[in-house]
Design a protein around this nucleic acid. Structure first.
Length: 256
DNA sequence: TCCGTAATAT
DNA sequence: AATATTACGG
């Protein structure tokens, strides 16, 4: 596959992700987004040949955000987002449009209300479906500009109307799960569960979660916490070992 | 599907 | 640097 992705250098990717971070930094107003992006654009201005994709992404993002700024988006959005429409499970053409609308709405919400949790399970499902879709194709396709086909060649990524649509990589950012905060209390429950279940080496995420009785907690979160916890244990173990080796060496030397 | 681990992101 | 999330393979 001689796709664009294959030719994208590591450096370029780094720069791209930096741009994306700048673009979606939380709590910023649209105007500030634009400013930041334009500043970023200035930085790479001299290296257009090496960073053509970056430039393209920047231009896309800037023009999108500018559109957002200059349009009074309220009435447009009201038409664009229809909460009353049912969400379909099938991935037919119309269904996909609905998913896009949902996601767009989330993206906006996230922009305005930072750290808002997605409580609506329908929305959650929608996100998961979307995520699965993305997972199944080359993740780079999200960086491609409108009009380019996906690796699967399934559909073209063209905004269906003049209504501003967030660039795909901004959508992706909004999708990221909110960070789980492990409060001391939560951690205590976790440790208790571990002990009941036979220690950190034996206990299994699902059982731990069930034992903790914390609905809201997911298997993945427990799994992740467990991984970290096991690492801590290994580290302190190896430290103890080192210490005892030192002591042993000292005793040996002392006795001779 | 679930788990463990590695790679990434914050 | 620590800690959380995501990707990936078994």
């Amino acid at each position: 596959m001689g796709s664009l992705g294959d030719e994208l250098s590591l450096g370029q990717r780094r720069h791209t992700s930096k741009i994306m971070n700048v673009a979606v930094e939380k709590g910023c107003k649209l105007e500030e987004h634009v400013k930041k992006l334009e500043e970023e654009k200035r930085k790479i201005q001299g290296s257009e040949l090496e960073l053509p994709l970056c430039l393209q992404i920047l231009n896309d993002a800037i023009s999108y955000l500018k559109k957002e700024t200059e349009t009074d988006t309220q009435p447009l959005l009201k038409d664009f987002i229809s909460l009353s429409k049912p969400i379909r499970e099938e991935h037919d053409e119309e269904g996909e449009e609905l998913f896009k609308e949902k996601k767009f709405q989330l993206w906006r919400e996230n922009d305005h209300i930072s750290n808002a949790r997605f409580s609506d399970t329908k929305i959650k499902n929608t996100l998961e479906i979307e995520r699965d879709e993305e997972k199944s194709s080359n993740s780079l396709y999200m960086l491609l500009s409108p009009g380019m086909t996906t690796p699967k060649g399934r559909r073209k990524l063209v905004a269906s109307s003049f209504v501003p649509q967030p660039p795909p990589y901004l959508q992706q950012q909004a999708l990221r799960k909110q960070r789980r905060c492990w409060t001391p209390e939560l951690h205590r429950l976790f440790v208790d569960a571990l002990q009941q279940l036979g220690g950190p080496g034996v206990a299994i995420p699902k059982q731990i979660r069930e034992h903790m009785q914390e609905e809201s907690l997911t298997n993945d979160e427990v799994k992740s916490h467990l991984q970290k916890y096991r690492l801590h244990i290994r580290k302190s173990d190896s430290n103890l070992e080192k210490q005892s080796v030192v002591v042993l060496g000292f005793n040996l030397w002392n006795s001779s």
